[in-house]
């Protein structure tokens, strides 16, 4: 048991009309070591929900338990929580500010109050993890390309060595290779470091490839939650919410209507290849 979200609702203060909740009665339980994907239409409240998990915004109603402790309790150490729940924002490259890449990555661990040696070690490791080469250590982050900046920003959060890593659309605006590298990195963190991962993304293919569990949001509510296969089985509902299933799933569903039979639901190209070969042999 790691994170429990209990009847959480949230309303932006300056929203003029009453009853304009950005989040409504959210209940969610995230276990240790899970790899959760979060999808939803633009404006469904994904980013808002993620910002609750490390206490950046305070719920209007309801509460969150982290390892059994209520994070809104007055004696709860919020700064320690920020170190344990790492949050990579949407377009994180705009938060860079230091004169060199290395200093920028060290900002997080330094704020945790670690000894200098530890700070340096972690920053160095994070830099290697995201695939930034050593020559870049003393380069200004502002002279990098967008994709490289993204990596620096992600490294800045990784260097804090969080238990839970939340990534809000980390691949938005990257080229296919950049996307794959970032997603592989996330998978590696999940496998090797036993990080709990929450990934927000608009790409159903990425979700089908990487996550285990899938949560679907719509207008501030959680509407579907479960194993990704079970969630992607609801093709019609997802389409109605402005979402979709992976393209190969659509394809195989169409084929099925034409009378072909498959042994299981197909989510990825690799699975489709196997099944199709079986059919046409």
């Amino acid at each position: 048991m790691l994170i429990i979200i209990d009847h959480l609702s949230y309303k932006y203060k300056d929203v003029v009309e009453k009853d304009e909740y950005a989040l409504r009665d959210i209940n969610l339980k995230i276990e240790d070591g899970e790899f959760v994907g979060l999808i939803g239409h633009t404006g469904s409240g994904k980013s808002t929900l993620m910002q609750h998990l490390n206490g950046l915004v305070k719920a209007t109603e309801g509460t969150i338990y982290y390892n059994g402790e209520d994070i809104y309790e007055s004696d709860f150490d919020m700064r320690a929580l920020r170190g344990k729940v790492g949050l990579v924002f949407q377009y994180p490259e705009y938060q860079l500010f230091e004169s060199t890449i290395f200093k920028d990555i060290s900002f997080g661990p330094k704020n945790l109050g670690l000894p200098q040696l530890e700070v340096d070690l972690r920053s160095y490791q994070a830099m290697k993890d995201v695939g930034l080469s050593e020559e870049l250590i003393d380069v200004s982050p502002f002279s990098l390309s967008g994709g490289q900046k993204r990596r620096v920003a992600i490294a800045g959060v990784l260097a804090m060595e969080p238990e839970v890593l939340i990534l809000d659309e980390p691949t938005a605006g990257l080229d296919p290779k950049g996307r794959e590298e970032i997603l592989h990195l996330i998978r590696r963190l999940h496998k090797e470091k036993k990080c709990t991962i929450i990934l927000v993304s608009h790409s159903m293919e990425d979700m089908a490839d990487y996550v285990q569990r899938l949560v679907v949001m719509h207008e501030g509510r959680i509407v579907l939650d479960g194993n990704k296969r079970d969630v992607f089985a609801h093709e019609e509902e997802l389409c109605m919410l402005g979402l979709a299933v992976p393209q190969v799933t659509t394809l195989t569903n169409q084929l099925r209507k034409k009378g072909y039979t498959f042994t299981k639901d197909i989510l990825t190209v690799a699975e489709a290849k196997e099944e199709l070969l079986l059919l046409f042999r």
């Binding site: 490390n54 170190g83 924002f89 938060q95 900002f107 330094k110 800045g156």
Partner: peptide, 13 residues
């Protein structure tokens, strides 16, 4: 607001 939150997520005070 956004940058403030992003830096607070990295432990800024």
């Amino acid at each position: 607001d956004k940058i403030m939150k992003a830096q607070m997520a990295r432990g800024a005070d």
